[in-house]
Design a protein around this nucleic acid. Structure first.
Lengths: 230, 230
DNA sequence: CACCAAATTTAGTCTAACCTAAATATTGAT
DNA sequence: ATCAATATTTAGGTTAGACTAAATTTGGTG
């Protein structure tokens, strides 16, 4: 029914979905940075996508874009492809955590509905990818997911790692080496207000690990309330 | 070391490899037909590919092209991707015979070396795809394969089906329904010189099947010499 | 051996998506 | 409230790969 969207259009919609999850509207510069193109190119593309019938974006000059319902539907289809593929590569082909994102970025645009439903079946209709990101359901509902950022926690607070943003393979390797992976339990040991560093004790690990704010910003957690000692 | 070839270029090289397997040179019109573009577009592209450094094609005005060794190497890489993918889709994801070609046509251009080597391992370094087409080895040697066309056989001759050209899903479904699949044994019962029809008895099948020349041309076989009855 | 049909090439357009450089709008600090 | 810094848009250009229409080459046949 749909398709004949270019890969470039799909990339724009996917990135705009991600950007508008955290903030209200996605700005030209944010989109340009995320896609590694110039702001001028972004302006050209978003004007086009806002002028299609039906429009895929709602655009106001100088104040960025949001997805229309039609644009969001397409974004969710691509994100579903991406995250299913990440899990498939990880589970079925034995890829490591940090390799799946780049491969999925290319495959997400070319797989058929057939491919999607076959890997869904193989994986048992999964809800989360290897980084803990939620996978939109077959009818494109996004599962609920942790929104509490690790950066917000303070000493003595405990929780479990829920998801780690992908995109930086180096970071993912580092975190994996220190046991910072989805479902890992942890307690915050220390917080440095000056540089924003958090010291974490990951459950079952010999030594604590210190993470700066550029790292803790990428990690989302679920709190576990400590037992009251009255 | 190489890549930064467009999908279009890869498609041209793949098709030219196929065409030059059967005949000497690939003509503009043959390429255009196979790729579903106009002859004018083909002329433009082959001129470009013959002018790269190193050239990927050897081109003479008005008399078609052949691959240079560099062009052939790339063609074989794509063909390896394509056929590995076909087998992977068939074996691992449960695709049917007639669905794998279209999906592989899109995936072949985007998978990484990593993906290639992981599916190679899963499949056990295979040498033939589900249609019986040979898969170039990791160092791009093409395995030997049957070149005897079913169309050449005559009554009383027997053999086994070795490969069936893909590309026509309808035909593949028809052949599958009648047991005409790689490794199937058969005996030719009749030949009609007028229309070129062959009547085949497939081993283990209740009834013979009649195949016209448009079909038998697509099928390659290995002969089994009948026992001498002296 | 000349001519016609088929094949091929040339010439000129088009679209998608990118770019740079220059112009303009917004915003935050004084 | 102004102005400089930043963000955004406009204008114009490039590349890849396709297209149509017109010109040319080739090859087979009378």
């Amino acid at each position: 029914m749909r398709d004949e969207l270019t890969h470039a259009v799909e990339d724009y919609l996917k990135i705009i979905y991600d950007l508008t999850q955290s903030q209200g509207r996605a700005s030209t510069t944010q989109i340009a940075t995320a896609l590694e193109v110039t702001p001028a190119s972004v302006t050209g593309m978003i004007k086009k996508l806002a002028a299609t019938c039906p429009p895929l974006l709602e655009y106001q000059r100088h104040r960025g874009v949001v997805l229309t319902p039609e644009g969001e539907k397409i974004a969710l289809e691509i994100i579903r492809h991406h995250r299913l593929l990440e899990l498939f590569l990880y589970e079925t082909l034995g890829y490591s955590w940090d390799e799946v994102d780049a491969e999925a970025d290319r495959l997400e645009h070319v797989i058929s509905e057939e491919f999607e439903s076959r890997i869904t079946a193989v994986l048992g209709d999964p809800t989360h990818d290897p980084h803990g990101d939620p996978i939109p359901s077959p009818d494109l509902e996004m599962p609920s997911h942790a929104t509490l950022c690790l950066r917000e926690l303070r000493p003595k607070q405990s929780g479990t790692i829920q998801r780690v943003r992908d995109g930086d393979a180096e970071l993912l390797r580092f975190l994996h080496a220190h046991g910072v992976v989805p479902q890992a339990g942890f307690t915050v040991l220390a917080y440095e207000p000056f540089d924003g560093n958090l010291t974490l004790q990951i459950e079952g690990r010999p030594a604590p690990v210190v993470l700066g704010p550029r790292v803790t910003r990428q990690i989302f957690v679920e709190r576990i309330e400590e037992e009251q000692i009255p």
